[in-house]
């Protein structure tokens, strides 16, 4: 058992508090500034793509070729197809690739 913080419930409350503090932290810091430097603005505009791509590339490259192929197909399909079709197509490539033993 983990030691400290009043047992399991105490620890869960602490973890929930830490997580919520992180969820509001960026906004609390930035909302203190009335105007942001254009470079800061540019950095913030980059946040969604910058974070989400880190949840894609490492798992795609550490898995089998099926994972990498699924991501590659999804990237190309996104240029033309709506999101749901891309998701279905990418998953189809992955499942087919894994079934084929890649």
């Amino acid at each position: 058992m983990v030691e400290g913080f009043g047992g399991t419930y105490g620890l869960i409350v602490l973890l929930a508090t830490v997580t919520y503090a992180l969820r509001i932290g960026g906004d609390l810091v930035l909302s203190r500034f009335k105007r942001l430097h254009p470079r800061v603005e540019a950095g913030l505009e980059a946040v969604p793509a910058a974070v989400l791509i880190t949840l894609v590339i490492p798992p795609a490259l550490t898995g089998s070729p099926a994972e990498a192929a699924a991501i590659a197909v999804a990237v190309i399909a996104s240029l033309r197809l709506p999101p749901v079709s891309v998701l279905v197509l990418g998953m189809a490539v992955l499942i087919a690739g894994r079934a084929a033993g890649f």
Binding site: V56, E67, I71, V75, S78, P83, V86, L87
Partner: peptide, 18 residues
């Protein structure tokens, strides 16, 4: 692996950003 594919779609959705 649903989420990595979903996040790929999302990342591509931001490609008009500078």
């Amino acid at each position: 692996f649903v989420l990595p594919v979903y996040f790929t779609v999302m990342v591509m959705g931001f490609r008009d950003r500078p």
